[in-house]
Design a binder for these strands. Structure first.
Lengths: 225, 225
DNA sequence: GCAAATTAATGATTTATTCAAG
DNA sequence: CTTGAATAAATCATTAATTTGC
């Protein structure tokens, strides 16, 4: 136990603070080169590897979504209860007619819209270098221009790290070249990250749908009809 | 479209045959070094990268499971229908008393048990070289012996490729050393791969459980009570 | 106070689901 | 429709908080 230090990475407070700050600023799925840069920077504050950064963002994003889902679910259940109570009142005391009354929940709070690209230039650096050239697809190729898909913005960790065995050397070099630019990165805030929850939910008096995730199933209270 | 060849890997018939043969022989989640070897071998028959091999096994395994699930689900539904019919008969014509009658489905066909380690020595090679030394945790360390978990058998693709930036060079070397042994590999057939489906299912007259997978949900027929 | 015992967080992996090329 | 590629969800496993009995 005492040798081999620790089996898993244990972020230092500084590292954590920086990661959280980046997350707060919009970083969600950093590309391989971004991860490299982040890792390099964070290693000033303690032992860290690229995969730690990769996993951190993955987990943090997922658990953020989860938290929001939880909140929404709770809200939803409350409203359902309210509705049911209301309905009971209706049926007991008032005239029938409206036994179905959908309610729309709010699009949960989305951070005030951010433009697709935002610059994170923390830690006193030259203000605004040209950004376009830093956008990451580092592999030359693709003259055909026909590849400007959103896939391009996907997490390319695997694509660059796992991939292209025969180009590994070149890739390493291109990543290194990009290092020289210093600490700065292009952040892609895409909509699915800003608004993790289902966009719109219809509430019905008798719940017939759910998100059907494990959590929902477990929290599911049997509704006696 | 015509330049840059093809965006995605297109396996040649030979490559496919070999991959399928390996799968048939029990390979499911090859380690990074196994992937390296496989890739090297398959590249004799056409362009291929490590990630292609990685993804191929992942997808093939997943879709195998999916196929089996589909089959099971169908079977299950049939049996449920039968049961329901039987029950109706019961309630209509016979004495009450047994309104709950579990039935156990067969553990679906498991390939006759294979020992934990099996050797795949295709393509005319020296018969049985020492295997133990090839078992993959290539990184020395762990003298403490206190780590003989099943984690050790996990897919180490990421651990080795993604991980340990500072050891990358050493790792490459160790992989290369292993190459020299020729075409042979250690295959770990673990139980979860041999028996992908839920081990045992209890059938009840009124279905209250399911595997709760997307597929089940979609196929779910509303059971009027 | 203070360890053993529980529980909550969270790092690391695997599995399911989705996207999209051909 | 099949299947390679990629992401998201679920799960496992270990570490940190927290509680509990002394």
């Amino acid at each position: 136990m005492s040798p081999a230090a620790s089996a898993r990475w244990c972020p230092t407070p500084e590292q954590l603070m920086i990661l959280e700050e980046m997350y707060r600023t919009g970083v969600r799925t950093p590309s391989a080169s971004q991860i490299q840069q982040i890792t390099a920077h964070l290693s000033l504050y303690g032992k860290i590897e690229g995969k730690n950064v990769f996993y951190w963002f993955q987990n943090h994003k997922a658990r953020d979504r989860q938290k929001l889902r939880r909140k929404l679910t709770k809200q939803l259940q409350q409203q359902q209860q309210q509705q049911q109570q209301q309905q009971q009142l209706f049926q007991q005391h008032l005239s029938p007619g409206c036994s179905f009354c959908p309610i729309y929940l709010d699009h949960h709070q989305c951070p005030a819209s951010a433009s697709a690209f935002r610059q994170l230039s923390c830690y006193n650096l030259p203000p605004s270098p040209p950004l376009a050239s830093l956008s990451y697809p580092p592999q030359g190729g693709n003259i055909g221009g026909a590849e400007s898909r959103s896939t391009m913005e996907y997490n390319s960790w695997r694509r660059e790290i796992i991939g292209n065995d025969h180009q590994k050397a070149d890739m390493e070099k291109s990543v290194m070249k990009m290092y020289s630019g210093g600490w700065m990165m292009v952040v892609d805030v895409d909509s699915s990250d800003r608004c993790p929850a289902r966009p719109l939910q219809t509430l019905q008096l008798f719940p017939t749908t759910s998100t059907n995730l494990r959590e929902d199933r477990e929290n599911a209270t049997v509704q006696p009809v």
